[in-house]
Simulated assay, not measured.
Amino acid sequence: MKDVHVGPAENGWAVEVGGKADRTIHATQEAAIAAGNERAKRDKVELLIHGRDGKIRERNSFGHDPRNIKG
């Protein structure tokens, strides 16, 4: 499974999984994050939230956590 990315798009905010082929557009960042959370939880992958500058500002893991940290 591929990670879920939320980031700015031409006409709103996008939720992408593996590129533009699997992409949905949302009017607000809040709506995109909610949709991304649902998808990441369902797929048990990481959610990466990008700011307007494209840099990752937050990440959440829902199943497969690549870090080996307990707690």
Rank of each mutant, 00 (worst) to 15 (best):
P8W: 00
T28I: 12
A21R: 14
A27W: 03
A14G: 15
G7T: 10
A31V: 09
V4Q: 03
R23K: 15
G19M: 04
Q29S: 12
K41H: 09
V15I: 03
A9I: 00
A32I: 11
I33D: 02
A35G: 09
A40E: 03
R23I: 07
W13F: 14
V17Y: 00
G7Y: 10
E10M: 08
A40F: 04
D3C: 09
Q29C: 12
A21V: 03
A14L: 11
D22L: 12
A9E: 07
V17K: 01
T24M: 05
E16Y: 01
N37A: 03
A21K: 14
A34S: 11
I25T: 12
V4L: 06
A9K: 01
G19K: 08
W13R: 06
A40T: 04
I33G: 00
A31W: 00
V17S: 01
W13M: 08
R23S: 06
N37I: 05
T28R: 13
G18T: 12
A9M: 01
E38W: 00
K20C: 08
A35H: 05
P8R: 07
A14F: 07
W13S: 04
I33Q: 04
E38V: 04
E10P: 07
V17N: 01
A27Y: 02
R39F: 01
A31F: 04
A35M: 07
G12R: 06
G18R: 12
A9D: 08
